[in-house]
Design a protein around this nucleic acid. Structure first.
Lengths: 340, 340
DNA sequence: GTGAAAGCGCTAACAC
DNA sequence: GTGTTAGCGCTTTCAC
């Protein structure tokens, strides 16, 4: 690898002159600049980012922590972050928390130790304690939360209007003629889940439909759990839901399978709609309706906010929570009336 | 952030003594060691990895390039690499090539410039030219290829027995009574695709079945393409395949949809089996049979081989190509005979 | 057993 | 305009 020193040696100049020439400093003679630039190109010199990091204690890197990488929603978010970051000369490093808070703590430590300039994160679902993120912030490393909102934390957040999404999805089910609605929620300590549940209830209230506690079931964001809980909803075949809102993709997939397993006709006997819109939704039979979240855009906005904080380091900031709108994608699993 | 120098200052020692004490050097007095260790713990000192990298020109980081992150197969591979890497004190940084060779070249440059210690990669499918990887190797950064085998490149590779997988899947279709078999292949310049196609043909030959050129169709690894090509196979309803092998997950998903769209009964009129076994395979209707690839294990083995090369730097190496076995997962989409 | 000094590659304050 | 020096945090000769 070729270094500044080497260029300086070959040209009989000093390191600093070369450094300045390369950064197009105004105090270097045009001719010298020329020679330096030429040789640098010829030798295909690239500055050593590690040396730079050490010197500036800035790594031009932003850390990302997501529960799971192989998930189309997080995949889009990452691509969104990537796009903005690269454009602005930043690099990304991705960590998976596997939805474990221990792992998340370790990841945060790595981010700190490896001197990332900032962090974009969707917290592990079990998490309650945010101290590790606080530590990061105190060390001057800004944090942006996306998707999973957190409380009592002063920083930017980019989330989706979960309440509204759930509300519209529920109204949609009602419009399709469903009257006996159930909701498969997730871990109730997650604000995201509370919002979705809230939207569901609000829609029922608005339409004067009963909220049956036993049809508001809670379980982890896992396919198995969604499957199991759905089957339980159909334990009594004389009195079962005719419309289901699932609070996450995995739960929705589990439910979809369960409905077929118990032999119910979808959407005639039960309509189903799920949160987030995975690429396989249209492939299911019947194709799964969903509340699509703008992942790529969330990534972009998070990255913009973060980079802004990084570059304005120290300056006071008015923290904002950006709320993005969801998109209701109606497919056959929830379509009981004919399209006109 | 607390540094060596700071500890030295507080203890009235020199940086080097502290450094040595921390690394448990035998030439430091037991008592001094004790004091240093204590203070370090108290201050929760962590060595600055950037300084270390600069000093050793080793970053303890391994780079990974995959076509797409949000893909369950690559997700498992990454988790496999992660597991081994963390255990051995390495860090990973993930790049997506988005299956573009330009992007891949950029990623490789980043890996070089950021001084990763090694690279694990599944090349972008269009790629033919491997010069960028050669450059890396010449700079002393070892490379391990997985999944997509490359030719004429001296290094370790970890792949799957694609020929055998395709062969067994095809035989399975034949056992199920299929006699008119088609294969949706991928980009033919990919060795992986040639292997799969080869396995398919070999099985037909073994069973004296005709290989019809018009039923050996080629297209990119995209769902749309798989869908389109499948529909074309059914353009003539009086003469269509009764069994299809799809050379990738996305193609298989597209085909699955197409078969339903053209109104064919699966598996009765057409049986389908695809490569790789995504988590949604069991959720499709009918559930999709597939040739499962051991992603996690591929990741582990790749990481082991890579770390081995990194740590044996310079020593001569006997390069090996590890061939892992696939697993035939039979589900309803290809099951025409009753299980006994 | 401990310290001083050099160096990894780079920038920046301070000369001249 | 250009060079010298110091320093980012660490390890590693080389002295004593």
């Amino acid at each position: 690898m070729i270094t500044l020193k080497e260029i300086a040696r070959r040209l009989g100049l000093s390191k600093s002159t070369v450094s300045r020439a390369l950064r197009d400093s105004s105090e270097i003679g045009a001719e010298t600049k020329q020679r330096v630039l030429e040789l640098a190109r010829e030798l295909s010199y690239t500055p050593n980012p590690i040396a730079l990091s050490l010197q500036r204690s800035r790594s031009q890197t932003i850390g990302i922590i997501v529960p799971e990488i192989a998930n189309s929603f997080f995949g889009s978010v990452i691509s969104g972050i990537e796009e903005v970051a690269y454009r602005q000369g930043y690099h990304i490093t991705i960590y998976q928390s596997h939805d474990s808070s221990d792992r998340e703590v370790t990841d945060v430590r790595n981010i700190l130790v490896r001197r990332a300039d900032g962090l974009v994160v969707s917290t592990a679902s079990q998490i309650r304690n945010l101290d590790h993120f606080r530590t990061l912030q105190e060390q001057g490393i800004p944090v942006v939360f996306f998707d999973r909102k957190v409380e009592n934390f002063q920083t930017h957040q980019v989330i989706v209007d979960d309440f509204d999404g759930a509300f519209r999805a529920t109204e949609h089910l009602i419009e399709q003629g469903c009257r006996k609605l159930a909701c498969l929620t997730g871990p109730q300590h997650l604000p995201i889940v509370q919002q979705r549940t809230g939207g569901f209830k609000a829609a029922l209230q608005k339409h004067d439909l009963p909220i049956r506690a036993e049809w508001l079931v809670e379980g982890p964001f896992r396919q198995n759990s969604g499957n199991q809980l759905t089957k339980e909803l159909f334990a009594d075949l004389s009195d079962h839901p005719d419309g289901i809102l699932a609070a996450s993709t995995s739960i929705a997939l589990g439910a979809h399978l369960a409905i077929r397993e118990v032999g119910m006709k979808m959407p005639e006997e039960v309509a189903l709609i799920g949160f987030s819109d995975p690429p396989i939704a249209p492939l299911l039979d019947p194709p799964l309706s969903s509340i699509a979240q703008p992942g790529f855009e969330m990534g972009q906005q998070s990255a913009e906010l973060l980079i802004d904080m990084i570059e304005k380091k120290g300056k006071p900031i008015r923290y904002q929570t950006r709320i993005l709108q969801t998109d209701l994608v109606v497919r056959r699993s929830s379509q009981r009336t004919q399209k006109v």
